[in-house]
């Protein structure tokens, strides 16, 4: 028991997490590439044409996974931010900060692909609907988190201020998720639910889940790559970064 705790905290310092992240990174990148290729193959060559929406429905294979990731990454980011506030560990805040840009990218893509799907199916790129508006708020929360952090010169103070924003903003994630149930909305209900049978063809569901897995692995790889850069930036004056092989020349 005590061994497990010790082992866990060993990686809580940037110095020991940096090489571990470097070793893990290529594997997550490889998984992302392989599952992404498989997912795209299913999306375009295996999944049948939709009876109602024709080929436009194929946007689902990117829209649903990026939307899931935008919400999931926010919760992970807020979780790391909360850990950073509670335990004041350097790594937690760095992890939260490393996730934010990737999360913002997925939130943007969710809105973008949603607009391109909304036009042919609803006749409008944008409507002020509960689901769409709360996702837009999520995008702004990511941008606000990054802007607030960037606006405070002292990184450790910036970490704490941004962490509070991240935690308060987390309330928005369940609002997005349940918006289609709580309000009358143009947006369709959940595509996948644990409580009822899938409402779509098995190949469509498989393609969507594989794409979601690909984006998940990609997000981990991107966050690991970014956290490594953040560690070097913030601890450039420390002995451990200066002793790294890769900084020799």
């Amino acid at each position: 028991m005590s061994n497990g705790v010790l082992h866990w905290f060993r990686y809580a310092s940037p110095q020991s997490f940096y090489p571990l992240a470097g070793r893990l990174l290529p594997w997550f990148a490889l998984l992302a590439a392989l599952s992404g290729a498989a997912g795209l193959w299913i999306a375009f060559f295996v999944a049948p044409t939709d009876a109602q929406q024709g080929e436009s429905y194929r946007i689902i294979f990117v829209h649903v996974p990026v939307s899931w990731m935008s919400m999931f990454l926010y919760l992970v980011m807020a979780g790391w931010a909360g850990l950073g506030l509670a335990f004041n560990t350097r790594l937690s805040a760095m992890m939260a900060h490393a996730i934010a840009p990737t999360g913002a990218m997925f939130a943007f893509l969710s809105l973008w692909t949603g607009a391109l799907w909304g036009r042919p199916t609803w006749g409008a790129y944008w409507v002020w609907d509960a689901r769409l508006t709360s996702e837009l708020v999520l995008f702004f929360l990511y941008l606000g988190y990054m802007a607030l952090h960037a606006a405070i010169d002292e990184p450790r103070r910036g970490d704490r201020a941004a962490a509070v924003l991240a935690l308060v903003g987390a309330i928005n994630v369940p609002i997005i998720y349940f918006s289609v149930q709580w309000w009358n909305t143009l947006h369709q209900g959940a595509s996948v639910s644990l409580t009822r049978a899938p409402s779509m063809a098995a190949t469509m569901l498989a393609g969507m889940l594989i794409m979601a897995f690909a984006f998940w692995m990609y997000s981990i790889a991107a966050a690991l790559a970014r956290v490594r850069a953040i560690m070097l930036e913030r601890e450039a004056h420390m002995q451990w970064t200066q002793e790294l092989q890769e900084t020799a020349s």
Binding site: E55, R58, I59, H63, W112, L116, W117, R119, P120
Partner: peptide, 12 residues
Amino acid sequence: MGGYAFYVWGSF
């Protein structure tokens, strides 16, 4: 893409 090229390729 069955006439939806702009929307589908625009997303991907």
